[in-house]
């Protein structure tokens, strides 16, 4: 694997992440502008979103270990698979979180909705769409890892998926803390 290709792929990913960040910056600034006006209901953050936060942070940690292992020449499979499982659990928690919101009478649209609840759904949904992209990448990385395609000299795939997944992790933590305070 040439250094140039490594650099190019990583740069592509970093720039794409900058774009994704701007997308969420747009949405969260919209929340700031809108929440300053009248008719902004407060919402208690569903407990499932706390679980999902824990899940995505843990999965990120597993990917850090996976990278350490592959650099030492060990198989990273178990850690990548662990991260994938936690990623799937993250998705499950988000869906359960929405369930909990509807049980509390906070809907996306219609009579029971409010701009604050609509924003909560849109932002968490948009994040989950990006997570699904990450999960696809994690599945591919898991398969390749099980096929022992990664060595200590060639682990670009794990590096790329880790960078993106850490980004999704940090992004979620930002969104979660932001929403925790702005929809209160």
């Amino acid at each position: 694997m040439s250094t140039s290709k490594n650099n190019t792929s990583k740069q592509l990913l970093w720039i794409a992440m900058a774009g994704i960040f701007m997308f969420f910056a747009g949405l969260t600034s919209a929340v700031i502008v809108r929440s300053a006006e009248h008719g902004w209901d407060s919402i208690d953050m569903p407990i499932w979103f706390w679980y999902s936060t824990a899940a995505i942070i843990l999965s990120s940690l597993l990917l850090i270990i996976a990278k350490w292992q592959v650099k030492k020449g060990n198989s990273p499979s178990i850690y990548v698979l662990g991260a994938l499982a936690l990623g799937l659990f993250f998705g499950y928690c988000q869906v359960k979180g929405w369930d909990q919101l509807t049980a509390m009478g906070m809907y996306f649209v219609g009579e029971g909705s409010n701009p604050s609840s609509s924003f909560l759904y849109v932002i968490t949904f948009a994040h989950l769409v990006h997570v699904i992209g990450g999960l696809v990448a994690l599945i591919i990385t898991s398969v390749k890892s099980l096929q022992s395609k990664y060595t200590k000299d060639n682990y670009l795939g794990i590096e790329l998926v880790s960078i993106y997944w850490h980004f999704l992790d940090v992004l979620w933590v930002y969104l979660f803390v932001f929403l925790l305070y702005s929809v209160k």
Partner: peptide
């Protein structure tokens, strides 16, 4: 472009909703 078009996408997404 990379930094500003995603914000338009966010605006358009809310508009579509």
């Amino acid at each position: 472009g990379v930094l500003s078009f995603p914000v338009l996408l966010a605006a358009a997404l809310l508009l579509i909703f």
